[in-house]
């Protein structure tokens, strides 16, 4: 939204920044404490009055060095990236088509199918995991990235399809009707007229699919038990041992696992900022 009026910063804007920062301090405290745990020895944190900032004499980044050295964290991140990108790309294509269909064609059967999709997500994954394992074991696809991608797509698509439907709903049907009168086919209209208008929606849905796939633990640990195929979540879980938890290592790995998604959020920004829909709807 481009506000032409305010070039300079008004006191009100500084006020908003102050409020935002205050909110962030509260909301991001758990992340801050994860960082604290990764740089301060547990002995100093496990007291009745722990320090709230890293003490200069004992804080160190050793945990990161140790994790990077002793664990294949790069490999875990890479595996997670492949699973996440595969899942998100397939999901976004499928759910754009499906969401458009659910939004624009509202027969009883279509709506029932849309409901059934959501319904399929009602069973907890823990109940489905054994049959899912049977499928991929039968197909010889254990320790295969595609197995995890496919099952993540199946788990994600019911949600992303509905999400896309919501975003398509927000686009007036007159726009594409006009395009079709101009002689465009339906798919062409979707691609050339609707998809550009859907950019914030696509970005949102893509991010959503990425987050689900990035955070998946159950499917990854069950279908890719081989350590060379571990994703970052399985890697993080491996810091929890039988007798002890490597807290600083776990938190260091946890912090590192956020970075790719944070980068994704930053890339997402321009898609959200451009209020494309507003301009085009009018025209």
């Amino acid at each position: 939204m481009s506000k032409v009026l305010s070039r300079g910063r008004t006191p009100q804007q500084w006020g908003l920044l102050a409020i935002s920062l205050a909110v962030l301090v509260v909301l991001l405290f758990p992340v801050y404490w994860m960082i604290m745990t990764s740089v301060v020895p547990s002995k100093e944190l496990l007291t009745s009055s722990p320090p709230l900032v890293p003490p200069a004499d004992s804080a160190s980044l050793d945990a990161y060095g140790e994790v990077l050295e002793s664990r294949p964290i790069g490999l875990w991140l890479w595996n997670s990236t492949l699973v996440t990108l595969g899942t998100a790309l397939i999901s976004i294509v499928i759910s754009t088509l499906g969401g458009y269909s659910l939004s624009r064609f509202r027969t009883k059967a279509q709506q029932a199918m849309g409901f059934t999709l959501l319904f399929s997500r009602m069973l907890p994954g823990t109940l489905l995991i054994i049959p899912v394992f049977v499928i991929f074991a039968s197909a010889g696809m254990i320790n295969n990235l595609w197995a995890v991608i496919l099952v993540n797509v199946a788990a994600t698509v019911p949600f992303t399809t509905w999400l896309m439907k919501g975003f398509v709903d927000a686009i007036p049907a007159e726009i594409e009707e006009a395009a079709m009168i101009d002689g465009c086919g339906r798919l062409r209209t979707l691609w050339q007229v609707i998809v550009p208008l859907l950019r914030p929606g696509l970005a949102t849905t893509f991010t959503y699919a990425c987050i689900l796939a990035w955070g998946d633990f159950l499917f990854a640990r069950t279908l890719m038990p081989n350590p060379s195929d571990w994703t970052i979540t399985v890697g993080i879980a491996s810091f929890i041992g039988e007798f002890s938890v490597d807290w600083s290592g776990l938190m260091a790995a946890g912090i590192m696992s956020m970075v790719p998604m944070l980068i994704l959020f930053v890339f997402l920004e321009p898609f959200l900022v451009k209020g494309m829909a507003s301009g085009s709807v009018k025209g």
Binding site: P30, V31, I211, L264, F265
Partner: peptide
């Protein structure tokens, strides 16, 4: 501020 406000979403459930 905006990406930071979304940060908790980026933390995998296991780590949370």
């Amino acid at each position: 501020v905006r990406p930071l406000a979304l940060l908790p979403w980026a933390v995998p459930g296991v780590a949370v």
